[in-house]
Design a protein around this nucleic acid. Structure first.
Lengths: 156, 156
DNA sequence: TATTGTTATACTCTATAACTATA
DNA sequence: TATAGTTATAGAGTATAACAATA
């Protein structure tokens, strides 16, 4: 199978539902026999349920899934170019600007002018950003644990 | 586990990527160790990849995933109230209006004034709508088959 | 001439409030 | 007064084109 970088985008997800029953494969709604077998439909509802759990979990620190992904990517691979990070997440470089502005304004990450190529910005966490990640790591662990439990058990 | 109706919404999904490598669990990008273990991230990318395949598959008949879901729901349970169908898909009734307008304008589905409660509209397929579903059923089967193959094999 | 980051803009999807007509 | 459908509108997320600075 291909291992080429996909360009799907990871943002979006709206709050509102209380239940993650979409994971319950025994919940064969009599109203959705066609849709219930649709993989994309199941995936979509599962994804939204997980994102909504994320949003509830991280509302206290005002962090969205996309922002989490960006911080996580910068933390893991500091110094990458702005466009590189955007591309890894399937975000257009034009749309990445405001996202990065926000993280920079909050003091969590920063752009540094490239020494060699002065057009590019390399991305780094600030000290505050590192602290922030440490601070939210427990929230993250709890969120993932909750999702795994709903899914039925354990990560393989 | 709860079997309450979830209110997550099924729309959204943007075109653009060529590969569904997000399904390849062996594709552990060295750049995403944190994200690669994030269930929501995996789900989001998988869902987008599936929706993009849907969009490519159904572009020829100009049908979006959400419209497909609505038609499928009306076909399965004709006569339901407009708000009932919207709620089953996690779509706000206000946003369902334009969606239904579109299907009605295309002659695929219709609203009928309720006899008892004249505020409500019951939803039905037209003859053309039934034909349309028959016409696209092969596209649907091919799409699902493609996704299942990418996922690694077979439906349990 | 090509690329990086940026701005501006349009389009889609989603959420809320308020209206109308019925109940 | 409450509900079904509708309208209007605001906010996200996403896509494209075009620009300045740099290569």
């Amino acid at each position: 199978m291909k291992t080429t970088q996909s360009s799907v985008n990871i943002s979006t997800g709206s709050p509102g539902n209380e239940y993650l029953d979409v994971f319950d494969s025994t919940a064969q709604s009599p109203c959705l026999p066609l849709l219930a077998t649709a993989i994309g439909y199941k995936l979509r509802r599962a994804q939204l349920a997980v994102f909504q759990d994320f949003q509830r979990s991280f509302a206290c620190v005002k962090l969205r899934p996309t922002e989490f992904a960006v911080l996580s990517l910068i933390a893991t691979n500091p110094g990458q170019k702005q466009t590189e990070v955007a591309e890894q997440l399937g975000i257009k470089r034009a749309n990445f600007v405001a996202l990065m502005d926000c993280l920079e304004t909050r003091g969590l990450a920063e752009r540094r002018k490239g020494d060699i190529d002065r057009r590019s910005h390399s991305l780094h966490l600030t000290a505050k950003g590192s602290d922030f990640i440490a601070e939210i790591s427990k929230l993250w662990a709890q969120h993932e644990k909750r999702i795994i439990e709903r899914l039925g058990g354990r990560r393989q």
